[in-house]
Design a protein around this nucleic acid. Structure first.
Lengths: 201, 201
DNA sequence: TTGACAAGTGACCTCTCGTTCACTATAATA
DNA sequence: TATTATAGTGAACGAGAGGTCACTTGTCAA
């Protein structure tokens, strides 16, 4: 109970910061949500800003481990349908994992105030996705599944619309199901346009 | 001078809110930037929240007039190159118009806290762009410039990546030139993939 | 000239914020 | 058992927040 208070503070801070922003959150509410009194927080963090920094450190670290390293690249699918399935698996995960949803919201809120948040937002929302899918499309081109073209351009053309729908999902979680369906529709449209294989593959 | 103080307050509020958020901005700084003292603000707005509401009203109204009405739809280009030029004109405008840049940043920051900001963000970042370009692609299909397909899906596939680059531009305005160049590269890629016309058109 | 009104001022109010600190309770250690 | 470190408490602090108000100034119409 006592030992993990630091972690619980971070979790609640992520929750509140991602809803009302750093400036819009006060530590009295934060600690109260944990059944504590505000001064108790200072046994675990030296300031409110220290919570923010620890949160960002965690987000940066998690991103690097989970999405940033070369060994975590998605596998190259063996068919166009495989690309659709790979995509839907990733989207289902990223849309329903509360921690990742809150991370995106927090980055959207704080990206213009904090330099590190800005950099991480750029990765989360655009460049990281391109880096992730460029080798996927390069591999699919080598396998003859996708027409030969600039794989980075294809990764961009593929991930950016999906990223936009994920954002829409963050805004309107009550419409998650239909938005995810739109992701799948787009994915199938994409393989229809760019694929060189019988789409039953 | 005195007459337009209300407008100047709104302009400065947009500036500050779009950088530090509503909660992260205080009215002493705001009025000081205008050479006023904070109590003077209350001659023009009854509260800080009233500024926020007036700002949102203005944004909603401006969007409806500028992007939301049917008569302001972009013209259907006569060639694939025309689509590229149309796009670049719009992007150059939206990326360099300070007021629109600040509006996007503000919506990104406040979209999870305020219901109206959330709705407007959805339009600005996704649905409005689709609505705008769906008739463009429908018209281009009728002219035989673009392969027949679901025009709304094409509008989505076209505008979402461009929107993502515009966001990147908001995050990194120092790289605006190269990001705009990426918009053009994407636009040309798109017409190459979807076009049915000699791209010299 | 007077009166009325809008715009701006500075002092002041109350509230909440982040933060500090002396203190207590607990549990592990020596 | 005595000691020490850790986690949590509650009162208090200073700063800064949003907001109010009596007052001054400038403008313009009557």
């Amino acid at each position: 109970m006592a030992k993990d208070t630091k972690e619980r503070i971070l979790a609640t801070a992520l929750e509140m910061f991602s809803q009302n922003g750093y400036a819009g959150t006060n530590i009295r509410e934060l600690t109260q949500a944990l059944g504590l009194v505000k001064s108790s927080m200072y046994k675990h963090f030296e300031s409110k800003e220290a919570i923010w920094n620890a949160l960002l450190d965690g987000m940066i670290d998690y991103y690097a481990r989970r999405f940033g390293s070369a060994e975590n690249l998605p596998p190259v699918p063996d068919s166009l349908e495989g690309l659709v399935r790979l995509t839907m698996g990733m989207v289902d995960f990223t849309v329903h994992d509360e921690r990742i949803v809150m991370t995106r919201k927090l980055l959207a809120i704080e990206q213009f105030r904090d330099e590190r948040a800005r950099a991480l937002a750029g990765k989360h929302f655009l460049t990281g996705l391109i880096q992730m899918f460029t080798p996927v499309f390069a591999g699919m081109m080598e396998k003859g599944l996708i027409r030969r073209d600039d794989p980075e351009m294809l990764a961009f053309a593929y991930t950016a619309p999906i990223s936009a729908l994920i954002h829409q999902c963050d805004r309107e979680p009550e419409h998650a199901a239909e938005i995810v369906a739109r992701v799948e529709a787009f994915s199938r449209h994409f393989v229809k346009v760019y694929g060189e294989e019988d789409p039953r593959g």
